[in-house]
Design a binder for these strands. Structure first.
Lengths: 113, 113
DNA sequence: TTATTATATAAGGGGTTACTTATATGTTGA
DNA sequence: TCAACATATAAGTAACCCCTTATATAATAA
């Protein structure tokens, strides 16, 4: 389909081959998120989350945008592998409840756009 | 789409996140292959190839079938993640030339069904 | 039976990964 | 300016990954 290399494609799939990053990408397909939201949702340390996002950013799968003291991450639709990512995400479990959780916990108070 | 877990899905993607295995799966989608064909195509050692196939088999992504002294591997369409695999494979480079190569080198002589 | 071929498995090593804790950077508001 | 907050980076570590070499298993053919 695309004419990118096997190696590059494998690199993208390896990035998606981690449950935290895979879930992140799934969430980002719905809406942009900031680091503290991920920390809350995944119950992981802030550096761990930051490091996962760094890898996604290094691969240019996500964009970051600072807004005040928060940095929001979003999917990068310009990436050559965005269609692959979209196709993969079709196959992951629904995560709507995660957004509901964020609302309920009033995370907006500590991480407000 | 499917109702399998994020973790299981990530596990499959991690398996596909290696250029040798990704390429193998792409080839197996076209036709079954035996170990010595992969050894030839990938210019890798026989144990290395065997170990990759072992991982794919452990995940039940491939089936094996002995025919004489050869063991043929094929994709397992029964696997819950087969649709994911199919969608991923749409995004890898064409490998038709690899089959042509096998023909030309008359691999049939050393690895004949 | 013995040699040959095809494949699998075991053991080991070097590189990578995904965390951890500690610290640095950058922004905001008093 | 300073304290609090959000995030990034650095360093360390245990577990894992992908190869290697050596050996075992299994089928075939002489």
């Amino acid at each position: 389909m695309e004419h990118e290399s096997m190696e590059e494609t494998a690199k993208i799939l390896k990035l998606l081959g981690d449950k935290t990053r895979l879930s992140m990408i799934g969430l980002l397909l719905k809406k942009e998120c900031c680091v503290c939201e991920f920390v809350e949702l995944f119950k992981m340390s802030q550096p761990a989350i930051s490091q996962h996002l760094r890898k996604l950013k290094d691969a240019e799968l996500v964009n970051e945008q600072r807004r005040g003291q928060w940095i929001f991450y979003s999917l990068n639709p310009e990436n050559a592998y965005f269609p692959l990512v979209q196709d993969v995400i079709k196959h992951i479990p629904d995560q709507q409840e995660k957004f509901v959780l964020l609302e309920q916990q009033g995370l907006r108070i500590t991480c407000n756009s």
